[in-house]
């Protein structure tokens, strides 16, 4: 199932979106590239490689790639929290640093190479093992791999699907609610929703 491009971007030009909504989404759409301020360059490149496997963006123009890792770096730079963490996990920044080290450690143990040098299939093998608590490496003795993977994945997914381009990908136009919704039942679409009807 694929949805037409440009839906959200064109809606953002209209009165169907409220001013605060437009501001939030345009801010993300037009965010300038930034250098990491929490992670080292190596850590950041590794985090990007991991995010590329978790939320693949194949087929997306390089200029339209959603920078998932930057969102994580920015949050950690600002020392922000989502309100809780598993008690068996270290503070978020430390967990990320440890976890990234763990990915490389597991990659070395199995393939004799750093995670970034692995093939996509090998990278997926490492990620699958971390998620299933089966990855090799002493890092995973001190960092609960399942909880780390869950937190990383949830944050990557939230960063990705908060972005207007990802919302176009799933045919989401809920931000265009300035006039409200009158047709809310099954198969009952407003005109502005019909352009994202994949079956149409």
């Amino acid at each position: 199932m694929s949805h037409p491009a440009n839906t959200v971007r064109s809606l953002l030009q209209t009165d169907l979106v409220t001013a605060p909504t437009r501001e939030a989404l345009n801010g993300r759409l037009n965010a300038p590239p930034r250098r990491p301020t929490f992670f080292s360059a190596d850590e950041f490149a590794l985090l990007q490689a991991v995010c590329d496997r978790l939320v693949p963006q194949e087929g997306r123009e390089p200029s339209q790639r959603i920078d998932i890792a930057s969102g994580i770096d920015l949050r950690l730079s600002e020392n922000k929290s989502n309100g809780w963490r598993y008690d068996d996990m270290p503070p978020d920044g430390e967990a990320y640093r440890l976890g990234l080290r763990g990915f490389d450690e597991s990659a070395q143990a199995w393939f004799g190479q750093s995670f970034r040098d692995l093939s996509p299939e090998q990278q997926d093998e490492v990620l699958t093992a971390v998620q299933a608590l089966e990855a090799p490496g002493s890092t995973w003795d001190i960092l609960p791999a399942d909880h780390f993977f869950e937190e990383l994945l949830a944050e990557a997914v939230e960063n990705y699907y908060s972005h207007p381009l990802a919302q176009e990908e799933i045919g989401y136009v809920g931000m265009a609610d300035a006039p409200g919704w009158q047709r809310i039942g099954l198969n009952n679409l407003e005109d502005r929703e019909k352009q994202t009807d994949a079956s149409a």
Binding site: N82, G83, W84, R85, M175
Partner: peptide
Amino acid sequence: ATDERAQDKLFWNDERLSAGQDALAF
């Protein structure tokens, strides 16, 4: 905004530590 990320300002985001078998999300 009609945007979840922008609205996380409504949540109590000071960190809480969640322990137990069914650790609670805050």
